[in-house]
Each structure stands twice: as C-alpha cells, then as structure tokens.
C-alpha cells in the first residue's frame, strides 16, 4: 500500500516588495505512514503552514513532489479530497450559520449522512450548542467545530494546523484527548504545532522544522534518547554539607546557586536513593531532557515557542 504522505524536496520562495526573497520552504522531504500521528514542530515562521498548504494542494511548490495516498494533490480532484479532512489555522466558516447548519453544509459537500454530522458534534462536545451561531462560540469551541467539520467526511488522512494555538490550558488538554481519539480510530493525523509538550504528548514521530528546513525526524523518545543528556536533580541548599555534595556528584556534576543545589547525573536512581536516605528531599525537582533540549541541540538555537 502507498504511504499516507510522501514529500520529496519541496521548495517555495516568496518575493515580497519589502522583505525581499524569503525561502519559506527550502528542500523539505518526509514520509508519513498510514495510521501514524505525525507532528511538524517549529517556531512561528518556520515554514510549517506553507509546507502543510503545499502538501494539501492549496499552494503549488516552486519544485518538488507530493503524493497523498498515492496521488498528486494538484489539480483538485473530488476523489482525493473526499478522503482528506482539513482544519486550517483560521476557523473557516460560512457566516451567520448555526453550528448544526455549518457542519450540515460540510456533511453535504462530502456526501456524508445527516446522522454523521450530529455524531461529530457529539464527539467534539458541541451537541448542546447545535443551534448557536458559530460567531458566538469561544475560540476553543470554534476549533472543535472546525475539527468536527474536518472529520464529517470520514477521512483517512487528517490535517490539523496549530489547532491548539491561542487556547487556554484546559481547552488544549481537551483537544489533545480528541486528537488522540481520532488517531486511535485508525486515521493518519498530521499536526503542526509550536508547543513542545503537545508534540511530545501526541505524536508518534516529530519533524523539527526551522527556517524552512526539516532539521530532524524521530519519535519524541528517540530524540531524547539520542540526545543522551544528563538528568538534572535540584534540591534546596542547606540540607547537605559540601563534602557530601561532592561525594554525591562523583558520577556527574554539582553546582550551588540561588539557594539550590543542582546535580547533573546519568544515574538518577542512585542519586535520588542517596538523597532520600540523607533526608535531603526538600525542594526536590527532577528534570529529564525534553524536546526543548532537542530543539536547542538540533537547531543550535534556544526554543522561544
């Protein structure tokens, strides 16, 4: 069977009057298998959305090749779009329609049954708002409706472009559950995000993108493993004397600053056991390497969300 997505060497350059030449997408290649949850992670302006729009068939690349479910997304074909579900960054709705009318219209466009529309509203938790005008919905509710519209055609491949941007933490977590459920049903999901935790929590594999290029692709755990970074253990100062600190730091490093002692170790279990037996666990914080460290390592730049 064909891969869900195959992208080879995409390039897109914008020529702005003031900005000059901007290489928005600069030689991007990746492959997404069917059923995978694939993330494209990068800061704002990294080229994520442009890449996604080229893959979806909204923009034509200057060069490069895209295959969706084995077919080219260009020119528009009803046979292909029927199998795709798309949520764009801006919630694109018909004006002045209610929630039910909105998803009903999308259902008709995809040739889906009316019952399916109601089912999707239920899935995203908007059934009780069915008769509300879309413009009255909160930001999170609009995003969920947008996702419901993306799912109403029972797609095999779902694109979600920063669905959780500008949402409060609770709404974001709710949306994570929804996205996980979509993927668990066997659909391939492609997600762009600039939230590290989001990519870590949801994605099977993550492509880290910066300045129009994909710097690396791996699973979140694989990235962290490859980084091979020490675990940082912090406790409040004053519980251990200097000799003991030096003793505990033997297999790593230890430093004292701002009333805390910070250990960096590759054997956190041994260190934590020792600290516990010393009764020196006040102010304890353990931090393992995460995608933020990976981003710093891969791009050479600090992560700024």
């Amino acid at each position: 069977m064909d891969a869900a997505i195959e992208v080879a060497d995409l390039r897109k350059t914008y020529r702005g009057r003031r900005t000059g030449e901007v290489r928005a997408v600069d030689g991007v290649s990746f492959r997404v298998e069917r059923g995978e949850f694939f993330g494209i992670l990068g800061p704002n302006g990294a080229g994520k959305t442009t890449t996604l729009e080229i893959v979806e068939g909204l923009r034509k690349p200057d060069s490069g090749d895209v295959r969706l479910l084995g077919r080219s997304p260009w020119p528009h074909s009803p046979e292909l779009t029927r199998r795709l579900g798309v949520q764009l960054q801006a919630s694109a709705f018909f004006e002045f329609l209610t929630v039910a009318e909105q998803i009903g219209t999308f259902a008709e466009l995809y040739g889906a049954a009316k019952a399916r529309a109601a089912e999707m509203l239920d899935l995203v938790g908007l059934a009780e708002h069915a008769n509300m005008r879309c413009e009255k919905l909160s930001g999170g509710q609009q995003q969920r409706l947008s996702i419901a519209c993306a799912l109403v055609g029972d797609p095999e491949l779902v694109f979600l472009d920063e669905p959780t941007a500008a949402l409060d933490p609770q709404a974001r977590r709710n949306l994570w559950d929804l996205m996980r459920a979509i993927n668990d049903e066997g659909r391939t999901v492609v997600l762009t995000t600039h939230y590290m935790e989001e990519a870590e929590a949801l994605c099977d594999r993550v492509a880290i993108m910066d300045a129009g290029r994909i710097k690396a692709v791996d699973s979140p755990a694989g990235f962290v493993r490859k980084l091979d970074a020490p675990t940082r253990v912090t406790v409040a100062a004053g519980q251990l004397d200097d000799a003991r600190i030096a003793e505990l730091a033997l297999d790593g490093t230890a430093s004292t600053a701002d009333g805390t002692v910070v250990f960096e170790t590759r054997d956190p279990r041994k260190l934590l056991t020792a600290l516990a037996s010393d009764g020196a666990l006040e102010g304890l914080a353990v931090r393992t390497a995460n995608l933020e460290d990976v981003f710093l390592h891969v791009t050479g730049r600090e992560w700024r969300g």
Binding site: H76, P78, R82, V86, A90, A92, F93, G153
Partner: peptide, 15 residues
C-alpha cells in the same frame, strides 16, 4: 480574513 474559500477548495466541491 476567514479563509472559507481556502477551506472549501479542500472539499470535494470544486471552486
């Protein structure tokens, strides 16, 4: 502003 046209281009309905 609302990108409705863009969204509809990705449905089976043609522009």
């Amino acid at each position: 502003r609302d990108k409705l046209m863009r969204r509809l281009r990705l449905t089976p309905a043609s522009v």
